[in-house]
Every structure is written in C-alpha cells, then in structure tokens.
C-alpha cells in the first residue's frame, strides 16, 4: 500500500515542479487580502490565521483538480486495473496534494514579523503541524468533490459554493464570542472553526476551543472523509476509460 501511495505522491510533486505556473496564484490572492484588510483595520494579527487558512483551503481543494484530468485522460483507469490497494491510491493522491498545499501556505510564515506575532520556535512547529492537518482535511474535501465531478468548470462552481461559507463561518472574519447565537451554532458545526482556533493558539493568540477538542474534531472529520473516499474508490465503476 505504501509503495503505491509513495509512487502517486511522488508523481504529484513531480508534476507540480514541472507545472509551476498552475499554482502561483493561490497564495497571492489571500496575501493581498490580508495586507489590505489588516492595513484597513490597522490590526495585522487579527486576520493572519484566517488568511493562511484561506490560502491553504483553496490550494488544498484545487490541487485535486488534477483528479478530474486523471479520470478523463485515463490515467486513473490505468491505476485502477493494477492491484494497487485502493487505500494506497487515495492516500497517495491526497498526501501528495496536501503536501503541495501545505508548502504553498508556508509563504505566509515569512510575514509573521509584519503581523507582529511572536509564536516562538515551538509555536511555529505547532503551526506547521496544524496547517498539515487542515491541508489533509481540505484535500479530502476536494478529492470527494473531484471524484464525482464531470468537468473542471463544475468543480470550480461547487467548490466555491462550499469553501466560501466554510471560511466565512470559521472565525476568520469575526470572533466566535461576539457572534449571534445561531451563527455560533453554524460555526461550531464547521470543522474549519476548530482549525482557526488551533492556529490562533499556536501563534500566541487566544483559541476559542480547547486544544484537545479542536484536535479531536479535526481528526474525526479527516478520518471520516478518508473513509468515504475509500468507499467511493472501491466502487470504481465511476472511472472512465
């Protein structure tokens, strides 16, 4: 299983390296957003976590767009007729794509001094770990969307409809404590809220939920989505060739 997963993940990274232009934009837009909004509010720390999360979510989900091409162009069918374990296929594709998204989000860490945040060495380390978990979670979201989507255009539409509300209700824009009660319920259901809470905590700000609760919620979501992905890939009737 690990062999197949490693081969697929390696392929993602190789392709990324050869097709750099594909992803250059993903970190740029959230960076611009962060700079403008932070300058406007004259508070560079407040929107920092939310902006990294924005960059990470979009690059994680969109790095699965290659799955649609893989399916259309037949690469996926070529993999599915080999004895590669289905778990290895999902794992390889997801880990590869998540690693790319994670690497792209690291650009933000260069701006830590500008944000006025001083998380220290272990804070940064924790932040890296949390970013990796969020990347994995959203790569799975993207994987599930891409698996069924007929075209990249449809994928764009659906994903935007899903990601924007998830981001807006995550505590990136406004604080959990100040929100209307029904808004709080919506936010509590959103896994991203827990990701933002953890990120804030690791960067030396205040987290809304306890570390343990946040980590558990993220773990349950990630495992659950991985299970669904595995089930779908197992019923491989959907792959064309």
């Amino acid at each position: 299983m690990m062999l197949s997963a490693a081969a697929l993940a390696h392929r993602e990274l190789l392709k990324f390296w050869r097709d750099k232009a594909r992803v250059a934009g993903f970190a740029a837009a959230p960076l611009l957003f962060w700079l403008v909004v932070s300058a406007g509010f004259n508070d560079f720390a407040r929107f920092y976590s939310g902006s990294i999360a924005l960059a990470l979510m979009f690059s994680a989900v969109f790095s699965n767009m290659t799955l649609i091409d893989d399916r259309k162009e037949g690469f996926l069918a070529g993999v599915l007729v080999t004895p590669a374990p289905r778990a290895g296929i999902v794992l390889g594709k997801v880990v590869g794509a998540a690693a790319l998204a994670w690497l792209q989000s690291l650009v933000f860490l260069l701006f830590l001094p500008l944000a006025g945040l001083k998380p220290g060495f272990f804070g940064v380390l924790a932040c890296l770990g949390i970013l990796a978990v969020i990347a994995l979670l959203f790569t799975l979201v993207g994987f599930l969307c891409a698996w069924r989507m007929p075209s990249t255009q449809a994928f764009h539409g659906v994903v935007n409809m899903l990601l924007m509300p998830m981001w807006m209700l995550s505590g990136s824009l406004f604080r959990f404590g100040e929100a209307h009660p029904w808004m709080k319920t919506a936010m509590a259901l959103n896994p991203m809220t827990y990701g933002i809470s953890l990120l804030n905590e690791s960067l030396g700000m205040e987290g809304v939920f306890s570390t343990l609760l946040s980590l558990s919620v993220l773990a349950v979501w990630t495992t659950g989505l991985f299970g669904i992905a595995l089930f779908w890939v197992g019923r491989s009737d959907h792959a064309t060739a």
Binding site: S4, A7, A241
Partner: peptide, 24 residues
C-alpha cells in the same frame, strides 16, 4: 485502453516506474 493512460507530464521511464510500484 483506447485512451492514453500515461501521464503526459512525466517521462516514459517515470511513468513505468510509477506503474511498476502499483504492481508491488
């Protein structure tokens, strides 16, 4: 297959190495 299953952005050798890994 009727369609191409090799990854166009990889070389022949890289494609075959990946595929061999899928076969263990």
């Amino acid at each position: 297959f009727q369609t191409q299953t090799l990854d166009k952005l990889l070389t022949i050798e890289e494609n075959l190495l990946a595929c061999g890994a899928f076969h263990g």
